[in-house]
Amino acid sequence: MSTTPPDTLPIRTSDDVVFVRQQVRLRAVQAGLGLVDQTKIVTAASELARNTLDYGGGGTVTLSSIDDNGRRGVRLVFEDQGPGIPDIPLALQDGYTTGNGLGLGLSGAKRLSNEFRIESALGGGTRVMIARWK
């Protein structure tokens, strides 16, 4: 079975966030994720896409399907060229926000994923990778 090649989508407007959600849902269904797992990865994607938009000043997300010896899943990489995050551990705390959100975006997305990696440099943008396995 061939897996769909990776896709890179822009995140420039709040409509893009909606489109990203739909595309992530498609990938999750293709990977055979159950309904709860689909909902988790789509919700996590929504949080991170909004972060990319609100704090990163827009960016992209790359969606890929993974198949690691029969273990299938979805991997998402969000990238922006925004101001970066000065203190990652602090940003990962529940309720911490520099904007007017609930401060659950990063920490929540981490809890909703099986894999979570974040890289950020001040002035050098932010890159967040998440994955959810079947």
């Binding site: 909902t39 988790k40 809890r111």
Partner: peptide, 13 residues
Amino acid sequence: RPAVAITLVELGL
């Protein structure tokens, strides 16, 4: 929906 409720709880809301 159940899946939404489970996810919201996990999200921390």
